[in-house]
Amino acid sequence: MNRKVIKILLLLLTAAFICSAAAAEEGRLKIATTTSLYDTKLLDLLEQRFEEENNVSVDTVSGGTGIAIQYGERGDVDLLLVHDKARELKFVEEGHGLERRCFAFNYFYLVGPEDDPAKVAGLNASSAFKAILDAGIADPEEVMFISRGDDSGTHAREKLIWKAAGLNYTEVSTSGPWYIEAGQGMGATLNMADEKQAYTLTDASTFMAYQRDIGLVPLVEGGDELLNVYVAMAINPATHPGVNCEMARKFIDFLASDEGQDIIASFGQEEYGRPLFFPARGNCELIGCPAEECAVPTTAACSA
């Protein structure tokens, strides 16, 4: 008798668990984000503020831009926060994204060991890459480059810079042991580069968060080649019925609002002595976003 009661209780428990999980889906906004916004905890801060104001629970799935776009194409999330212009434009063009909205930017750094064996300090990004390639092929023991190798936004930028240097990426990546593909997130890649005293391309924010624990220094910074623009895209409900488009739009408007932009502008000031990200507000032209991609509030409507 006793056992029967236990069995029934367990069954009920399982059923209740599954039902409650399914029911809770309603008031949720699902965001797939690139790791830099997440690992620096900027998104935590924005999320908390937004949750308080809108009585919604924000769920963030953090991964590279590659997997985030994949989630978006399948309609599994409501909003993307990514940083790879080519794939963003394609995403909107294919009807998965409602529109592209610029909300923040910073710069990529080429970081490396302090003694700079490939002598790249002061060069521009593509000449620095070329110098690392030459030095790496000549002496792979001394000069190494670690690539994210994970189709993230940072990895996409790395490929672009190789291209700008007049090189074929496939040939570069197979040209010798000096080129190492980590296949991991930015933090893990920085740790690996530190262990091996290698060069790597990193976004400024993740680097600043890690700077205290690693011995690498920024050698090349600034310039259009290293500009890093963060973009929000709501998933198009016409292509993916069932996504929470209204809430996604609200979140984008919140990011673009003075409140959101102020949070972005001041984030990290206290801890790192300077902000990790710059707001898009007032900088649209500088970062190459057309005015409508910066407009407040959002122009595109959810209903098709």
Binding site: F17, I18, A21, A22, A24, K30, D59, D76, V77, G242
Partner: peptide, 11 residues
């Protein structure tokens, strides 16, 4: 079923 990214889906 809307079970992706939910505890029930994990179970």
């Amino acid at each position: 079923l809307n079970l992706l990214f939910s505890p029930a889906g994990m179970a």
